[in-house]
């Protein structure tokens, strides 16, 4: 009941946020140099033709009318045509989104699955070789450029050792795509028992996921460790110890209280990964949303870029909504 109320209140704010975000994107697009009409007509069109396209595009209207039109169109799922692919932007995105989601999903899951236990462990035992290694790792990983690390990983594991396939997209070119259920190749191939596709998709995922996990896991690791350290020093853990609770119980008390910050940092990680995926996708020719964003920038494909930016903001809001809900479930103090 408490939860329902909270969700309802949060969902009420969401449209307002969306509206503001859409306004920003709208303003951004008007920032672009020159008259976008010529992008559609070409530089040698007649004045009549230009005026016609201007009218079609709605550019002859006052700005606020244009904005309302724009809102109306995106509300109906119409993001225009991509100039580069000549397809509706929505179709392009639908095709590319799963690839990015697959990348982010595995990266987040692995970062949390490795980073949290390692952070907890290093907080509990504050000495030893592992601690020093983890300290060094935490210090350096955040400073390395992800796209560079990806190239090094390719050189090592593809060129030198030949353990993993090269940066050629999400699936071996010789294989047919698995049946489209979720769009995530690993899951779809698993569901349909397509083992060849599963093996190939997993192998293709290995290097980009390794890159993202290596670079961004330090965030989870460091925050888990410091949250855990703070909690182990807290008065209630001290009292639990004074009351004769076992080490294990003291750790459980600390861990539970360290969870809210860990959840927050998982949200931040997901948000970071969406940006990090752009560069890593480019390196691995991943064909996801990130690479699409880069291609739209390089080719001045404004309709596409606009949609990707808007979508990334919506994704961010969704992530932080989930974070807030998780917080709410864990911490009874939040009203």
């Amino acid at each position: 009941m408490r939860l329902l109320k909270y969700v309802a209140r949060r969902l009420l704010v969401l449209p307002v946020q969306l509206l503001i975000v859409s306004l920003i994107v709208f303003v951004l697009v008007r920032q672009m140099p020159g008259d976008p009409t010529f992008l559609y007509t070409g530089p040698f069109a007649t004045t009549d033709r230009v005026a016609e396209v201007r009218r079609q595009l709605g550019l002859d209207e006052p700005l606020h009318v244009q904005y309302v039109r724009y809102l109306d169109r995106i509300a109906h799922g119409d993001f225009g045509l991509s100039m580069r692919t000549s397809q509706p932007v929505v179709a392009d995105i639908r095709q590319r989104l799963p690839g990015t989601m697959e990348l982010i999903l595995y990266s987040v899951v692995l970062s949390v699955a490795i980073g949290v236990p390692l952070g907890v462990y290093t907080a509990i035992r504050d000495k030893g070789i592992l601690n020093r290694l983890v300290f060094l790792y935490g210090m350096t990983a955040g400073a390395l450029p992800d796209f560079w690390f990806a190239l090094i990983a390719i050189f090592l594991f593809f060129y030198t050792l030949d353990w993993l396939p090269g940066p050629m997209g999400r699936l071996d070119l010789m294989l047919a795509k698995p049946a489209d259920i979720t769009g995530l190749y690993t899951i779809d191939s698993l569901l349909t028992g397509n083992w060849a596709a599963l093996a190939s998709a997993s192998a293709q995922l290995a290097l980009p996921v390794l890159t993202l996990v290596f670079i961004y896991m330090s965030l989870v690791l460091k925050n888990t460790r410091s949250a855990m350290e703070d909690m182990l020093r807290s008065d209630f853990v001290l009292y639990a110890r004074a009351a004769g609770l076992s080490r294990m119980m003291q750790w459980r008390y600390a861990l539970r209280n360290a969870m809210p910050p860990v959840i927050t940092v998982t949200g931040i990680l997901t948000w970071f990964l969406l940006g990090g995926a752009v560069l890593v996708e480019t390196v691995f020719a991943w064909g996801g949303l990130g690479q699409y964003a880069v291609q739209s920038v390089v080719n001045s494909d404004y309709a596409a870029l606009q949609a990707v930016v808007l979508l990334s903001a919506v994704f961010t809001m969704a992530v932080f909504l989930v974070v807030d809900l998780a917080y709410f479930v864990i911490d009874p103090r939040i009203k």
């Binding site: 951004l28 920032q31 970071f272 964003a293 880069v294 920038v297 990707v308 994704f315 961010t316």
Partner: peptide, 12 residues
């Protein structure tokens, strides 16, 4: 997301 926004600002 920081990088996407940076990309978009430069892109536009």
């Amino acid at each position: 997301p920081v990088f996407i926004f940076a990309l978009a600002l430069v892109g536009f």
